[in-house]
Design a protein around this nucleic acid. Sequence first.
DNA 1: AAATCATTAAACCATTTGGTTGAATGTGAA
DNA 2: TTCACATTCAACCAAATGGTTTAATGATTT
Lengths: 113, 113
Amino acid sequence: MSQPVDTDKVFSALSDGNRRKIIELLHNKEASIIELAEFFPISFQALSKHVNILESAQILNKEKKGKYRVLSLNQKALQTSLEWISYYSNFWNESFDKLNVIIGESKTDGAPE
Amino acid sequence: MSQPVDTDKVFSALSDGNRRKIIELLHNKEASIIELAEFFPISFQALSKHVNILESAQILNKEKKGKYRVLSLNQKALQTSLEWISYYSNFWNESFDKLNVIIGESKTDGAPE
DNA sequence: AAATCATTAAACCATTTGGTTGAATGTGAA
DNA sequence: TTCACATTCAACCAAATGGTTTAATGATTT
């Protein structure tokens, strides 16, 4: 089973530019830490720490594949934080009823945790 | 003129439960720090620091009104972070084209900063 | 079996964070 | 003017953060 998303952890993970860049890179294509390291000015050990923080926030998954750990995005935590913000963003709320009609989900009842 | 939104600051501001609770409370109704303090177990000085962090992230505005400073939400920063996340959330992207038709805006072109 | 490559672990460091308390400032009310 | 109230400022503290370097682990290649 999967753990519940920790909102503190998710936003905290997203508050660092290096970590958001990791997300950007993985958005295009899966990669290992070594492959990612090329795009960052920090040590791969530091990068590994950032990856662990993202994993702990359930923003990405690590899958052991032979010599490598393949990193890929996990939508779950991003969606949770998206829902939190969208609830408090009027711009979004204004479009919510219309949106719900389209995607067939109800997200307008009750504040997120 | 208004400053550009600092993504680090916005997500960092959102990563604390007390600060998210401030946003929740202000979502319903404007308030002063003293009024908010009732709902928190920390000192009003600590709360004042949290408010300053939210202000610095452009998530809320402080307006001097006599003896009080009235706090109210500013949608700008929340929308910016919403856009960032939505770009990397597949769930959302899947609904984006449909949504854009409805709200008549284009947000699918180009990654956010 | 030895060498190499990808990753993790551990110790360390400077800075930031989230809280405290006590004092200062500014405004409104008595 | 004096008193009370709302807020800010300053000094302090413990814990967390983001980086470093060196060493250890584990899988693949030679």
